[in-house]
Design a binder for these strands. Structure first.
Lengths: 168, 168
DNA sequence: TATTGTTATACTCTATAACTATA
DNA sequence: TATAGTTATAGAGTATAACAATA
């Protein structure tokens, strides 16, 4: 989707409960990622794929789990990325059934540029906050994510993220 | 609570900078919306469509602008929703070229249920936060969204949220 | 038999270009 | 001519089911 949040004057006043606010924030951030990824002809899905592969060389199966997709979906996803020269498949040495997916230099370069662009955009928005808010936000977001991860026994990661989500 | 230079709480939570943290949060929230929408066989796009129509009866053209999609995409989107009985097209009285899209009762019911489910999920996660964080977050998020909207001359909305149905 | 990955198939979502019917 | 909407077409993304190769 394109998720360019737009609409009539409903929220501009700031009369937003936190649930709606976080939903809107999610769409805004998602849209930022989408826009910067599109600059390099990447969909959010392709960007997530490259993001996951930044610090891993998983099997197709593991990749499916990491992305939350069916393995047949990942076949096509990697097919298209490989056709563009962003990803390569390598036979596994351990298991002759398995195939490892990894980034090419071009893939790595592309995802780094997209991530940098996204970081620039989001930072520019955060810079509009008052210093007190800017100081408090990182901790709250971190604690929120930790709480969520603990509750869901889930591995956190952001497709475009610059850093590894730890948790491994 | 005032400034805390190099927030140690954030680092303790797992060296996530705020950019990565917000990206992850966006994916988590987006995933929550996706999951609750899927419960009713709605994609995020269909849910956004229904969400937009909760308080509007726009022309196809306006709908395209609201969703950030091409008008031809909206034709198909509304086709599928109409086929399911969630949306109806009505000829415009003012302009014989134009067509208005609106929710059916079933569409309204469905989007309310999905929004309520999402609200429940997100609230449950927010409840894991310490009270101090829970008090601070809404204001920071609101101010962040207002800053973003002001900077981009854009009006905010979240396809699924609008208002929590609380007592619909 | 179970697992890994691919293929075949079908559907949603999206855009571009061409078309119609109004305006 | 310009605008509103649809249709035709193409491609990405997704899932289910069936399959081949390996374990």
């Amino acid at each position: 989707m394109t998720s360019r949040p737009a609409g009539p004057s409903a929220a501009a006043a700031g009369q937003l409960n936190v649930v709606d606010g976080l939903a809107q924030l999610a769409f805004v951030v998602y849209g930022m990622i989408e826009l910067r990824a599109a600059e390099h002809d990447l969909s959010v899905t392709q960007a997530r794929l490259l993001g996951v592969l930044r610090d891993r060389t998983p099997t197709m199966n593991e990749l499916a789990r990491l992305l939350g997709l069916d393995k047949s979906s990942v076949t096509g996803l990697v097919d298209r990325a490989e056709r563009r020269g962003l990803v390569v498949r390598t036979p596994s040495a351990d298991d002759r059934r398995a195939v490892l997916a990894g980034l090419t230099d071009e893939g790595r370069s592309l995802v780094s540029q997209a991530a940098a662009g996204f970081g620039t955009d989001l930072t520019a928005t955060l810079d509009l906050l008052a210093p007190a808010d800017r100081d408090l936000l990182p901790g709250i977001v971190s604690r929120l994510l930790v709480a969520y991860a603990a509750r869901h026994g889930v591995d956190l990661f952001a497709g475009l993220s610059t850093q590894v989500p730890a948790a491994d």
